[in-house]
């Protein structure tokens, strides 16, 4: 047998067996993720009607998008408005729920399941259910309001309320984020809290000075995923409002979807999608950059502590 003389760093490349094991995933990535990604970039340079053959237009689609499509700007602004309300709200709700399910109450497991349940339900079903709840004439919500003498708003008809409707319905799917917060809060050592309690810190102080700083990495993760999720929101608007009333919920995702599958402008829709991809990429980078100011990792803190 040849002795191990090669430097250690080549080992990863020389071994074939590990690659064989991850081959299915690599193929899956190339065929189902990288392939379509590159293909859509190529498509975005063409005028590509579904039923006839494509023609090359260079950056025509991008130029048209920025200079000749008022709906593009409207959809962007609606989507960002939504994200601005939705992301903080979603984080707060998830955090509050996570705190609630860490309490030791009788039957806490049942509550945990109930809070998580909506996440398991498919977006389509959620849309149908909320459609019933929000129906302004015969919906359950306005029926309940009528008991306390309030005439509920026309949720899905009044443009002012429709976007709020979408925010409420989206917040329904908060379970995954709640679960992530929950596991992180659970892993904070009890003795820190005990020490704080002995020093006379109340529950609120404990929350802001122990819980929040300890879970900042999780908050970072949740902020990023929910920003991405908010900017890509499609299912709900597609099924619940169809972009209406009066295009008040014509989100960017719906704008792209309709350009592709309703107006059959595949090239233009690809250009739209790429623009959003770049926006999301930049936003994510920005959030990452900012994270050094407010996210604390355990080992970082330890190192710094050691220096002192």
């Amino acid at each position: 047998m040849i002795k191990k003389t090669r430097p250690q760093k080549y080992n990863l490349v020389n071994k074939k067996v590990p690659y064989l094991f991850i081959l299915p995933w690599m193929i899956g990535f190339v065929v189902f993720t990288l392939g379509p990604l590159v293909f859509s970039l190529i498509m975005s340079l063409f005028d590509w009607p579904v039923t006839s053959s494509p023609t090359f237009v260079g950056f025509g689609n991008y130029i048209k998008m920025f200079t000749d499509d008022p709906q593009f700007y409207k959809s962007i602004s609606i989507t960002f408005k939504f994200a601005l309300v939705f992301v903080p709200l979603n984080l707060i709700i998830a955090l509050v729920l996570a705190l609630l399910i860490t309490q030791s109450v009788k039957g806490i497991k049942i509550f945990r399941t109930i809070f998580y349940l909506p996440t398991v339900v498919s977006g389509v079903a959620i849309s149908i259910i909320w459609g019933w709840i929000f129906n302004s004439e015969y919906g359950i919500l306005n029926y309940l309001f009528s008991f306390i003498g309030i005439e509920g708003p026309k949720w899905l008809i009044d443009p002012k309320w429709a976007i709020i409707t979408i925010v409420i319905a989206s917040a329904w799917g908060v379970g995954t984020m709640m679960l992530i917060f929950y596991t992180d809060i659970k892993s904070i050592p009890r003795d820190i809290y005990e020490a704080a309690a002995i020093d006379g810190a109340g529950p609120l102080r404990q929350f802001f000075y122990i819980t929040i700083p300890s879970i900042t990495p999780t908050i970072l993760f949740n902020v990023i995923t929910s920003v991405i999720g908010a900017l890509q929101q499609l299912t709900l608007v597609l099924l619940l409002t169809g972009g209406g009333p009066l295009k008040s919920t014509y989100f960017y995702g719906l704008f792209v979807y309709n350009n592709a599958f309703k107006h059959h402008k595949l090239g233009y829709a690809s250009a739209n999608a790429w623009f959003m991809f770049i926006v999301i990429l930049l936003l994510t980078l920005l959030i990452f950059k900012s994270s050094s100011a407010w996210v604390f990792y355990e080992n970082e803190v330890k190192k710094e502590g050691g220096k002192k």
């Binding site: 026309k154 008809i157 009044d158 443009p159 002012k160 209406g244 009333p245 009066l246």
Partner: peptide
Amino acid sequence: EQIFNPST
């Protein structure tokens, strides 16, 4: 919609 929406 602008014509028939009760809020417009």
